[in-house]
Structures are given as structure tokens and as C-alpha cells.
């Protein structure tokens, strides 16, 4: 776990929300495998991360219908991405999120 935690920490340092306009987290806490969404939500909540783009809004939708967890990301260039995180680890989500942010950022 040590190596994975370190890798996760390195990925979290790289998170830059400049490419995002809205991130919607929807999950039912009583459904199975919501740990990764909740950890991702916590990991992206510090002020340091939020300060990379204050225009990026977080929407948290706590459901009560046992639906599977999802993260819906809207990018500045109009693209959208949906993470169905039921079978994803936190590291997988953060890594793919970073890759997508790099692809859709306007800096290129």
C-alpha cells in the first residue's frame, strides 16, 4: 500500500482544475463500492486544489436509490466525461482525471 499511496499523493499534487467548469459527484452512500468516489471528493476538496480554478463548481448529489456512483466532469472546451467509479480505485480516477484535464486544457 505504501507505493500506491505515494503514487496517489504524486498524482494529487498534479491536479489542476483549469480545464474543468463543473464536477458532479453522484453516489448513494449505502450502495457498494463508493469508497473511491468519496475519497476522490475528499482529495479534491482542499483549498489548495480548489484555488487552481475558483470557477470550477462542485456539485454533490447524494442519492438514496442504490444507484452506482458516478463522476460527471465538464471541460472548458465543451467536452464531458463520465467516470463510473464502481470498479475503479481512487488512484485510477485521479490518474485518468489528470490525463483528461491535460488533453482538454486551453494551454496547449
Amino acid at each position: 500500500m505504501g507505493g500506491l499511496a505515494r503514487a496517489l499523493g504524486l498524482q494529487l499534487k498534479r491536479v489542476d482544475l483549469m480545464a474543468c467548469t463543473q464536477i458532479t459527484y453522484s453516489f448513494d452512500p449505502f450502495a457498494a463500492n463508493v469508497k473511491s468516489v468519496r475519497q476522490f471528493l475528499f482529495a479534491l476538496s482542499p483549498t489548495k486544489t480548489r484555488s487552481t480554478n475558483y470557477n470550477c463548481s462542485y456539485k454533490i448529489d447524494v442519492k438514496s436509490d442504490r444507484s452506482s456512483p458516478k463522476i460527471h466532469v465538464k471541460f472548458v472546451d465543451g467536452h464531458e466525461a463520465i467516470f463510473k467509479t464502481e470498479n475503479l480505485s481512487t488512484y485510477d480516477i485521479v490518474r485518468n482525471f489528470n490525463q483528461l484535464c491535460e488533453q482538454h486544457s486551453r494551454k496547449k
Partner: peptide, 12 residues
């Protein structure tokens, strides 16, 4: 007896 809360017991 609070193990029924277990689905909630992950993350922070």
C-alpha cells in the same frame, strides 16, 4: 450493533 452503519464506514 452499529455494524449496520458499515456501508457508510469508508473514507472520512
Amino acid at each position: 450493533k452499529w455494524i449496520n452503519l458499515s456501508p457508510l464506514l469508508c473514507s472520512h
